[in-house]
């Protein structure tokens, strides 16, 4: 840990689909201050050294979820990771693991985005309340039940951290299953039965072996591993108790 400023070497994994068959590494040297982030370094390189370096970024304040990269092999938000912690370097930046690389540090996110509707990530009510009837009531305690799962910014670091997703892209994955839990745990929601098929599926909670790495890398404290594994018990209950619920409408 150095607290001052200086220079740091950064190794960046580059890939240009129009020229390359596989990525190669390029070295850049950038200056840094005590508060320079990895994103600052990438912007410095793009602006002053090589404009062809491609990466996603936007808010710079760890809330939009755009700028996840592998930083020395660990998935992190580059806006929230500081060069001082890696001095004197070198620092290795790659595209998020487990996703197909489009170019340089940019990955194809369809593996998450296309599955989103399967989570039914919206409030499901048996009877929708009229606007005129005002808001639903929900106590602070009830709200606390889904406060942490609702904090997910979809940055996909958890997918890059999950070897099971890496081996099996059909796996719904940590963020999606955390989203399922977010709505299921919302006292206003009545859509659990609609979401159970995803939970119960082979590609649902049952592809998880509780590596736990998703929760370790989450920059927002979501704990997807807990969201998934709590639902293993729910799914197991659903598996055996569905026979007892015939006619109760509990199961689909």
């Amino acid at each position: 840990m150095s607290d001052g400023s200086g220079q740091i070497d950064i190794l960046i994994s580059r890939y240009d689909p129009e020229r390359d068959d596989q990525p190669h590494t390029e070295r850049f040297t950038v200056p840094y201050q005590h508060d320079s982030s990895v994103l600052d370094a990438l912007l410095y390189i793009k602006d002053r050294i090589d404009g062809s370096l491609s990466f996603r970024w936007s808010c710079r304040m760890a809330i939009c979820g755009s700028c996840g990269k592998m930083i020395n092999g660990v998935p992190r938000l580059s806006c929230k990771t500081f060069l001082r912690d890696y001095a004197p370097g070198p620092l290795h930046i790659e595209a998020l693991h487990h996703f197909p690389v489009i170019k340089d540090l940019v990955v194809e996110q369809a593996g998450f985005l296309d599955k989103l509707p399967e989570a039914r990530p919206w409030l499901i009510r048996e009877q929708e309340q009229a606007l005129a009837d005002g808001p639903h009531r929900q106590s602070p305690r009830q709200r606390a039940r889904f406060a942490s799962t609702s904090a997910c910014i979809n940055c996909l670091l958890c997918y890059a951290a999950c070897p099971q997703y890496g081996m099996k892209p059909d796996f719904a994955g940590p963020a999606l299953l955390a989203l399922v839990e977010r709505y299921n745990a919302d006292s206003r929601d009545q859509g659990r039965a609609e979401r159970m098929p995803l939970i119960n599926a082979e590609d649902g909670v049952w592809s998880c072996t509780l590596v736990g790495n998703c929760s370790a890398v989450c920059p927002k404290g979501v704990d997807p591993a807990a969201a998934i594994n709590r639902n293993k018990l729910e799914s197991a209950k659903d598996y055996f108790l569905r026979f007892l619920k015939i006619g109760s409408g509990g199961a689909e």
Binding site: P197, A201, D203, G204, W206, A236, Y239, F240
Partner: peptide, 17 residues
């Protein structure tokens, strides 16, 4: 789009054990 046709996993049997 739909998740309703996802086949149910039989993993719960062995997972509980």
């Amino acid at each position: 789009m739909s998740n309703q046709n996802k086949p149910r996993s039989h993993e719960p049997i062995v997972w509980l054990l």
